[in-house]
Amino acid sequence: MGLTKEQIAQRIAKEVKDGYYVNLGIGIPTLVANYVRDDISVEFQSENGVLGMGPFPFEGKEDADIINAGKQTITTLKGASFFDSALSFGMIRGQHVDLTILGAMEVADNGDIANWKIPGKMVKGMGGAMDLVASAENIIVAMMHTNRAGESKLLKECSLPLTGVKCVKKIVTNLAVLEITSEGFKLLERAPGVSVAEIKEATQGRLIVPNEVPEMTL
C-alpha cells in the first residue's frame, strides 16, 4: 500500500534545496541522490571521508580506495574532496552538513529514534548514526510505516535501544509525510490513494490530523 521505496526517495528529494550539503544513510536514503533536481547544486557527504560523491563507477573503473559509507565503490564529482574520519565527524558534529537522511527501525512521537540494535537478534552497531542524529539540525527519516508483521513503526515510545533522543524532525513513509511536534506526529501529506483512516490505523503514537491533509506530489 502507498509508495514504493523509490517513491519515498523521490518525495524526500523534494526536501533537498540548492546549496545543501547532504548526508545520506544506507538503504532508501541512498536512492534520494537519483531524484534530486539537476538544476540545483548539492553535494553529498559520506562519513567515511568524501564530499562530492558521484554515481557508481562504470564497470572496470572501480577503485578499492574510493568507497562510500556502505562500502560500495563510487566515483567523485567536480569539486570533491577527501578527508579523515575526525574531520568528517567534525563536519557533522559542527553542523556544517545541512540535511541528514537516514533509515529507522522505530521512531517515537517525541522524535526519539532506534535503528542500531535488536537485543538478542541483531547487533551490527551504530556506525555514524549516533553522531549524526545527536548533532544534525535537520533530520529526515525514510522508512516503511509498518514492519513486516504489519505493526506500526511510529510509536508512543521506542521499544528498541535508542540511537538518539528527540532528534527526528520529519518522517517520510510509504503512507505519509509527518512532522514531529510537541504534541506528536503531525500529518502533513498522504500518499496517493491512501486515506487518513489508513494512516491512523498504522500509527501507534499520537497523531495530529489537520482538517485538510493534501495528497503528496512526487
Binding site: E47, D84, S85, A86, S88, F89, I92, R93, M126, G127, G128, A129, M130, D131, A134, S135
Partner: peptide, 23 residues
C-alpha cells in the same frame, strides 16, 4: 559511535585526555 571513535583517536594523538560530545 563512529565520530566518537575518531575523536578518541584524535584526542590521544593531540594530548587531550577527554572531551564532551552529544553523540
Amino acid at each position: 559511535p563512529q565520530g566518537t571513535l575518531a575523536e578518541r583517536c584524535r584526542a590521544a594523538q593531540a594530548g587531550i585526555p577527554a572531551f564532551y560530545t552529544p553523540a
